[in-house]
Design a protein around this nucleic acid. Structure first.
Lengths: 194, 194
DNA sequence: CCCATTTCTTAATCTACATCATCTTTCCTG
DNA sequence: CAGGAAAGATGATGTAGATTAAGAAATGGG
């Protein structure tokens, strides 16, 4: 069943019976995204919560100097959206792009609200998702303020071991918050020392 | 009525009838916090969501060099908690301290869960709170990565105009992510230029 | 209302990381 | 499988903001 990974993901936090699963499935749709394809551009209104089942997406902003800043990656079993835009239904600042060919499941904002009404425990599920994401973001703020780039890289390696090997360095550099040049130097420094 | 500000705050997102308000009130308790008093120390388990009605709290972490990093302020009409610890009920990293004599309303984790069960729409309310907070945190990550200290200060001034005058500079500096020394010279630079 | 403590200012020096430029390597795509 | 583009490496130089130190100003507790 194609929604297996998603059901599994949800079951970590709430229990669904067959009827509830059917309601959920009725609100989902699948999407194939090719490498380099954007599923959201800054300035657009975000209409979907996106759950990745294979491949990898990244969410990033572009600052006034044209520099990209990666806010997060979405490998399989992760959700991604421009939360600001999704919530407010105003134009957002996030771009979401496929780093490789990707399969994803989409839940539209409208369907998500219907789901809340028909199966209220989904309210709980998405609250928990948001809470987890808030906690991760707070930790990242603290890390960015108190750690060196090297320490942040080391944390990234521990937290996302599967991502390191098949993610371009410049993407990790951008997530860490340094230039690709400095990131490269930093890595060769680490290698030389160890 | 002492819970007026809180009811108002909640009413922005969900509508409560009198019976629901009474249930809520039964789960709350008031607390007076003196200037410099801590209501949460890092390493403790966070047991309360705290809503400030007067005065001001700050949430901060201390890094391995002993430097404080302010994650947020809670002036009147704001909620504060160590979300990580509150959610996981594990020891947290946040300190919460009163910057001046403060009145607050406490909702314990246990009571919050009871509230969810008895009045499910509170699930929605706290989901929305968390969402808003997530959005603000994401924006802060982007700002920290793409803006200069001066630009971040300017944003802070616009976003929290009421806080600027009665908050010690070093607290703002810490929130912005610079040393008090640099913050001071930055400000005198801004003044001299304008 | 006074003194101790905290906060703020200013200056000199230092450093983590950025920028710019160039070269090499990797890797999609036709 | 070739060649063009993107990614990565490396060197020289520049800069935002940190650190250290010391004095001046503010402030709140007794």
């Amino acid at each position: 069943m194609p929604y297996n990974l998603l059901v599994n993901n949800i079951s970590k936090y709430i229990q669904l019976n067959e009827a509830e699963k059917e309601i959920l499935f009725g609100y989902l749709k699948s999407k194939t995204i090719k490498r380099r394809e954007f599923i959201l551009n800054e300035g657009e209104i975000c209409k979907y919560s996106v759950f990745v089942t294979s491949g990898c997406l990244r969410g990033f902003t572009v600052d006034k100097n044209g520099v990209e800043h990666v806010l997060g990656f979405a490998p399989p079993d992760w959700w991604i959206a421009d939360m600001y835009s999704l919530i407010s239904q105003k134009p957002g600042i996030l771009n979401i792009e496929a780093l490789e060919d990707t399969e994803a499941i989409l839940l539209s904002k409208a369907n998500q609200e219907k789901l809340y009404r028909e199966v209220p425990k989904f309210e709980r599920f998405f609250r928990i998702l948001t809470e987890n994401s808030l906690v991760a973001n707070q930790q990242r703020i603290v890390d960015n303020m108190s750690l060196t780039a090297e320490e942040r890289y080391s944390i990234f390696c521990k937290r996302y071991p599967t991502l390191i090997d098949h993610l371009p360095q410049k993407q990790i550099a951008s997530y860490i918050g340094v230039t690709p040049e400095f990131f490269s130097r930093m890595r060769s420094g680490i290698l030389r020392r160890s």
